[in-house]
Amino acid sequence: MEIYKFAYQIIEEAGRIIRDSIDDELHIETKSNPNDLVTNIDKETEAFLTKQILNTYPHHRILGEEGQGRDIEDEAGTIWIIDPIDGTLNFVHQQENFAISIGIFIDGVKYAGFVYDVMNKKMYHCKVGNGAWMNETQLKPLKNSELKSSLISTNPIWLTKDKLADIYKLIIDDARSTRAYGSAALDFANVAKGITSAYLTMRLHPWDFAGGLILVEEVGGVVTNQLGEPLNILEANSILIGNKSIHDELLSQYFLPHTSLLKKIHTERFKKNK
């Protein structure tokens, strides 16, 4: 079976398992801080996806949020980058607004992206060169927009950081309005669908952005870090995505004037899979 069709099927199945267990008691642990949660469902979903992939494609490699593939040092071969539940806080507190995210790369080249809005049964998916889709509906190419007339999304935590507050506050002041969804994967999907015009955040891991990266580019969006550089799929990155016009505006007018600060943050904070 084609990798793309296989991936679609196992993601749907993983989503069904999550929905069937949504009312079960959760076992919740913390990771890097009290708000960085992981549940038994995160771990079980990654284990399920990993088993399905390796049973079918034993030579493929997996980089997953909950521990798979942290020793991957290069982009050779077929790599699946998996977030079993992106938006774990939403999952725990709301039982919605979370997604399964998978990006598939072959020798470092983008192959396919998936963001599955589990509770709404909305599968955002694409195979490079064939357009992006939500279930059976093809997504339209993105329309250009200006910041002043656009909805954007971001994580408001960056407004509390002294070094970044001035950059983010100015963007939020100049935008029409700002949203915070609590799931990076769904933020990417919202840009791909045209619900928001841009998404920016200071730090995401590969599993947070791998599926959405491919989706957004497939509808003509631009995806870079906040220095305008391509994302490294094996490392944490800052994120700036949007339609071409608003991406250019945000990059040139708001981020590049702070190049020295941003380069310092990238050098100090962004280490592979940490």
Rank of each mutant, 00 (worst) to 15 (best):
residue 118 V to Y: 00
residue 93 H to C: 02
residue 45 T to Q: 07
residue 77 G to H: 03
residue 66 E to S: 02
residue 152 I to T: 10
residue 23 D to E: 14
residue 11 I to C: 04
residue 189 A to H: 09
residue 154 T to W: 08
residue 31 K to R: 14
residue 46 E to P: 05
residue 154 T to N: 12
residue 221 G to T: 03
residue 220 G to S: 06
residue 57 Y to D: 01
residue 209 F to G: 03
residue 118 V to D: 03
residue 236 A to N: 15
residue 197 S to Y: 08
residue 31 K to E: 12
residue 75 E to P: 04
residue 251 L to M: 06
residue 119 M to H: 05
residue 200 L to W: 07
residue 161 K to N: 10
residue 176 R to Y: 15
residue 73 E to K: 13
residue 200 L to H: 07
residue 47 A to I: 00
residue 238 S to I: 03
residue 212 G to T: 02
residue 226 Q to E: 15
residue 80 W to G: 03
residue 231 L to F: 13
residue 127 K to A: 07
residue 91 F to E: 05
residue 1 M to T: 10
residue 54 L to C: 10
residue 34 P to C: 08
residue 254 Y to N: 00
residue 269 R to M: 13
residue 139 L to A: 08
residue 260 S to C: 04
residue 7 A to T: 15
residue 271 K to V: 14
residue 105 F to T: 08
residue 210 A to P: 04
residue 187 D to N: 15
residue 267 T to V: 02
residue 145 S to W: 11
residue 22 I to D: 00
residue 65 E to F: 07
residue 186 L to T: 04
residue 121 K to W: 10
residue 19 R to C: 11
residue 32 S to Y: 11
residue 128 V to P: 00
residue 243 N to H: 08
residue 133 W to I: 08
residue 254 Y to E: 09
residue 190 N to V: 00
residue 86 D to R: 00
residue 235 E to R: 09
residue 169 K to G: 14
residue 260 S to H: 13
residue 151 L to E: 06
residue 32 S to H: 11
residue 258 H to V: 09
residue 244 K to S: 14
residue 59 H to K: 13
residue 90 N to A: 02
residue 226 Q to C: 10
residue 137 T to Y: 06
residue 38 V to N: 07
residue 260 S to N: 13
residue 64 G to N: 02
residue 54 L to T: 12
residue 176 R to H: 10
residue 46 E to V: 03
residue 19 R to Q: 12
residue 269 R to G: 07
residue 136 E to A: 13
residue 220 G to K: 11
residue 107 D to R: 06
residue 100 I to T: 03
residue 34 P to N: 10
residue 238 S to R: 01
residue 175 A to P: 09
residue 262 L to C: 09
residue 174 D to N: 15
residue 35 N to L: 15
residue 190 N to D: 10
residue 220 G to M: 01
residue 220 G to T: 05
residue 8 Y to I: 08
residue 241 I to C: 04
residue 187 D to F: 01
residue 236 A to T: 14
residue 165 A to N: 09
residue 148 K to V: 12
residue 130 N to R: 07
residue 14 A to N: 03
residue 251 L to I: 10
residue 204 L to R: 01
residue 201 T to R: 01
residue 155 N to C: 04
residue 31 K to D: 12
residue 20 D to L: 13
residue 228 G to D: 12
residue 113 G to E: 02
residue 224 T to Y: 00
residue 144 N to D: 15
residue 20 D to C: 13
residue 29 E to N: 11
residue 46 E to D: 13
residue 2 E to S: 13
residue 232 N to K: 02
residue 100 I to F: 08
residue 214 I to Q: 08
residue 65 E to D: 13
residue 34 P to V: 07
residue 2 E to Y: 06
residue 168 Y to K: 02
residue 28 I to Q: 11
residue 66 E to L: 06
residue 196 T to L: 02
residue 205 H to W: 10
residue 64 G to I: 01
residue 19 R to G: 09
residue 151 L to V: 03
residue 195 I to L: 14
residue 88 T to F: 02
residue 218 E to H: 13
residue 115 V to A: 07
residue 233 I to M: 12
residue 207 W to A: 05
residue 116 Y to L: 12
